[in-house]
């Protein structure tokens, strides 16, 4: 059953001639990890903004559980590249923030927050302020905050884009663990081809001018990782490398068509 359904979505920003998104159709089921891959400016953030309810579609529609999306809602939690965390709260209170806003009772809240902090490996730093943490830790707080809320879908906009390669790889593995255990649908945006291939159960390749989907694939590396294969072994597998190069080639070809 698909949770999020996007039909022939188009977005044109006021005063722009070219649409930022054109005829984009997608669906995201509860057990899927859908990745949108593309160069910057291809409309990824716009797409996420529409799914989250921050941006109204110009054409087409977005449904969540069959209902049109018209505003932000707790069932669709977002995580941004630069933490949208609250620096005046400590890690625990940041993670509890959504539940507090939603008026959850203290007992439930504490239980969920404690579970979530443990899940993302933040239990030891619960009392720290977010600005005392490293970039990777801050992104964990962002993910934990989105999980602790009553969300059913996580929408992540280049969540690991600002991290160093080593931390990024750790976070990718953490995300797979969280996704598997938390039973949520995940929609993730990235411009990192390896990240997209490694994480996605569904991958859409996007291209700018106007922003649209140009290719869809279903990589299997996510499954292989969950079946116990090592992350480095997967990423250096000839099949992985071949797919990576073919995607890179498509991106470059589109870049040339753009320029032409």
């Amino acid at each position: 059953m698909s949770l999020l359904q996007v039909d022939k979505l188009g977005v044109t920003y006021p005063g722009q001639l070219q649409p930022a998104l054109h005829q984009v159709s997608l669906s995201l089921a509860r057990d899927e990890l859908l990745v949108a891959l593309g160069p910057s400016g291809c409309g990824k953030s716009t797409l996420l903004g529409v799914l989250a309810g921050f941006i109204a579609p110009s054409q087409g529609r977005v449904l969540f559980a069959g209902q049109p999306v018209t505003a932000p809602g707790v069932e669709r939690a977002v995580v941004f590249q630069h933490d949208a965390l609250l620096p005046w709260l400590n890690v625990h209170d940041n993670v509890a923030f959504g539940l507090k806003l939603q008026g959850a009772d203290a007992l439930t809240r504490e239980r969920i927050v404690a579970d979530t902090l443990r899940l993302v490996g933040l239990a030891d730093v619960a009392g720290k302020r977010t600005w005392q943490l490293s970039g990777g830790m801050r992104q964990r707080v962002g993910i934990a905050r989105a999980l602790a809320s009553r969300s059913q879908v996580l929408l992540l906009d280049e969540p690991f884009g600002a991290l160093d390669a080593f931390t990024r790889e750790q976070m990718q593995q953490l995300l797979l663990r969280v996704w598997q255990q938390s039973q949520r649908g995940v929609f993730l945006i990235t411009h990192d081809i390896e990240e997209a291939l490694f994480l996605a159960t569904e991958l859409v390749l996007m291209s700018p001018g106007p922003g649209r989907i140009v290719q869809r694939l279903r990589p299997t590396f996510n499954q292989r990782y969950r079946a116990g294969e090592d992350v480095r072994a997967i990423k250096s597998d000839p099949e992985f490398i071949a797919l990576r190069e073919s995607l890179l080639h498509s991106l470059f070809r589109q870049g040339h068509e753009e320029a032409a």
């Binding site: 932000p72 941004f80 949208a84 965390l85 959504g98 806003l101 939603q102 809320s149």
Partner: peptide, 29 residues
């Protein structure tokens, strides 16, 4: 106050008043 921070709070269920009270005001302090 960061637009993204406000959007994130909205998707965590903040009402307009909660947004002002818990995100905008402390951010502007």
């Amino acid at each position: 106050v960061s637009q993204l921070r406000q959007q994130a709070a909205l998707s965590l269920g903040a009402s307009r008043w909660q947004l002002l009270r818990h995100v905008i005001l402390p951010g502007a302090l």
